[in-house]
Design a protein around this nucleic acid. Sequence first.
RNA 1: GCCGAGGUGACAGAGCGGCCAAUGUGACCGCCUGCAGAGCGGUUUUGUGGGGGUUCGACUCCCUCCCUCGGCACCA
Length: 404
Amino acid sequence: MALEIFDSKTGTLREFRPADPEIVRMYVCGPTVYTDAHIGHARSYVSFDVMRRYLELRGHRVRMVINITDLDDVIDQKAARLGEKPEVLAARYGERFLEDLRTLNVRPSYANPRVSENVPAMIGIIEKLNEEGYVYEVDGNHYFRTTLLGGYGQLTHERPEDLLADEPIMEGRENPFDFLIWKKSKEGMVSWDSSLGAGRPGWHIQCYGIMRGVLGDSIDIHGGGEDLKFPHHESNILISLAHKGKDAIGYHVHNGFMTRGKEKMSKSLGNFVPLRDVFERFGGSVVRFYLLRSHYRETIDYDEDDIEKAQQDLDLILGFEKDLKEVEKDGKPRGFVEEEIARHRKTFMDSMDNDFDTPGAITALLDFAGCAKTSPDDLRTTEARLALGVLSEADSVLGLTGAD
RNA sequence: GCCGAGGUGACAGAGCGGCCAAUGUGACCGCCUGCAGAGCGGUUUUGUGGGGGUUCGACUCCCUCCCUCGGCACCA
């Protein structure tokens, strides 16, 4: 069976075929680091980590990049409020974010580039776009001209006019979809020199610039939360069309949201759950397992009772593994036959092939553990070893152990 | 309004046309135990949002309606 991935752009499952069979390139939009991550962030990075791990189990080499957005107005604002330098504040939260990823047992990325470290590459792209007429200035700020290309709305599957709010925000722009690509420098802002004057790159070009700079001209998977589809990823596609004449993304993948009391977690509603609060009660492995009990595109309504259930399921699987290790050593009967082992492995892999269906994959493991208890056959050492091999594969994908 | 994703037992969550509506949790009953827990064995909930259609046969495909969540310019 072949791996199929749901591509947001086509809205369909598509068989996964990387541009370069040797190396799969993944780029996941990282957080803006002005505060600590919440459970929703964890969900996103765990989801993409599992994809990466599964691709690796299938024999691919994967270059996964999660960027860190350390240049942004909200960072500046918070830093000003605290009376510290924006770059210091961003560095601190950036480090804390990477710590959180480790706690969640997210495999180390190929790179975690900061926006601030990649500005020269972005300036190069912006200047080129400017020369080619894609950029115009309004009051010192520079905007990307979206109307030249058409094709806006590819990800959202909407006509641009339907995307408009009641009162389009113009701010002197030619078109409401045009976006800030170069923000002019002002007091307290970290800035760079360019042919467009002193300033810094806008959000959309930041991601695009890093992606191209670190991974090259062809990215297999571009991921992020579903809220990033519009306008962020939509704008990224436009930049790519202007810059290279095509959208260089193979598969646009978006994870679903965390809600709390059925409402989206957000700062304004005050219902977000800081990840570090969760870690006080539950280990990283458990939180991770909890998130993976739902498919990555489903909405998860945050519920600590469910985390406790996840803990129980996880204990069941880990207990099974422990039993197997004992059997492997002393041959105590406990068992099933080889066909059972192969069957459960197949279910696991088939589930993962189905757009990374981790709930199905986890079920296969629970079923595996259950059948081992009730089967009348004696388990031989060789079978224990086989079964442990399957669990080990599963663990390499789900990352059940090794965190905390 | 436009676009997207969904609606399966108490909860989570599979099923991709017949092989079981899976699996785990919960609850209940036993065994075990000085008690409890763990473990083991067993039992359990009028469960597939409504209505049409296709089919010998639909949770599974098609149409339609209802409902939920999300996006519509800060957002993972």
